[in-house]
């Protein structure tokens, strides 16, 4: 019974999501709204603004470095949680 209920629930989600996928902006279209001034500046100015050839690295560690500090912190908190859990018992 529970399994059928879960399947029904997931089917509903699937239908809604597929309807959304049909409406979504076409994948890979250069005219998509995501290709706005944000990636343009990353791609055109990152060399002179950060000096890195790999644009991903310049986003990761310069433009959005605070995210990456958070990411390093996630690893740190995982260590803290795992070690405290393993030592406590």
């Amino acid at each position: 019974m529970r399994k059928i209920l879960v399947l029904f629930f997931l089917a509903v989600i699937m239908v809604v999501m597929v309807a959304t996928v049909i409406e979504m902006p076409t994948l890979g279209d250069p005219a998509n709204v995501t290709n706005n001034e944000v990636p343009r500046r990353y791609l055109e100015n990152s060399l002179e603004e950060t000096g890195a050839l790999n644009v991903i690295a310049s986003i990761l560690i310069d433009y959005r470095a605070f995210d990456t500090l958070g990411e390093a912190t996630v690893l740190f908190v995982a260590i803290a949680a795992v070690l405290s859990n393993m030592k406590a018992h």
Partner: peptide
């Protein structure tokens, strides 16, 4: 490049 950088996180 932005989504790629986000997904690394």
């Amino acid at each position: 490049p932005l989504p790629t950088a986000l997904i690394l996180t």
